[in-house]
Structure formats: structure tokens, C-alpha cells
Amino acid sequence: MDVFLDFLIAKFNYWIYVILMMIGLFAMIAKNNLIKKLVGMCIFQTAIILFYVSIGVKEDARIPILTGHEVPHGGHYHTEDHERPYIDAKTVTNPIPHVLMLTAIVVGVSTLGMALAIAQKVHLHYDSLEEDEILAKLQLGNND
């Protein structure tokens, strides 16, 4: 049991990210309402961000802002500036995924805004947000 629990906890974030992503993906493909598709898209994108951020986590590490109190690791830096301790990389969270995900969040909100604008335009033209109703209207008005 303990082994199983350890195994479960060791990768828990990854399991949940897969579940969230699949919920989002399913909604994007299968939902009929355009806004619901976009809700799914948000969940889908956040799940990927969750995956990336989980990559960078280190156990018992501090946030990636250096305040001068980082755990020194053998000796000092051999530069003119002797006050600065040599930082043990184990004690600071990996900043790269954070940088990447800042970009991804911004891309996500841009895509969402664009998609919402398109959805509003669809509503303007077809007076509906349900995919099947829109397709039915398209079939009817095919000859205009």
C-alpha cells in the first residue's frame, strides 16, 4: 500500500494534468456549444501549463528570486565580488518553465479573445451558438 501511495504521489501532478487535458480536449471536440468549446480550450491550455510548471518544481526549494540568503555551496565565487555566495542550484526552483509559461498564458488569453470575437460574429450572422443549429441554417441557406 505504501509503495503504491508513493508511486501515486510521486507523479500525481502528471496524472491530474492528463485528466484535465483530456477533459478539455473532449469538450473541444464533442461539445455542441461554441462557448463550451472555448471553456474546454481554456482547461486544455491550463493543463499544459500545469504540466510545464510541474517540471520545474524541486522539493524544498525556494522561489526563483534570489535574495542573498540562498544556501551557499562550498566556497565563494572567484570574482571580484566576494560577498556573493555560490548558489546551490538544488535550493532554487527551476525558472525556465515559468518563463515559458508566462508566454503560454499570454498566448492563451490572446487565442481566447480572438475565438470569443469570432464566436460573437458567428452569433451575429447565424443567431445561434449551437453548432448543429448553425449547420442546419447553413444547409437551408445554401443557395443564397
Binding site: 461554441l34 480550450m41 469570432i118 464566436a119 447565424y126
Partner: peptide, 12 residues
Amino acid sequence: VLASFNYVIMGT
């Protein structure tokens, strides 16, 4: 417009 919406979903 509708084609573009599908493209947004697929493209994302």
C-alpha cells in the same frame, strides 16, 4: 467566420 472558428479550435 464559421470556418475560422473551426480553424481556431483545430489550430489550438
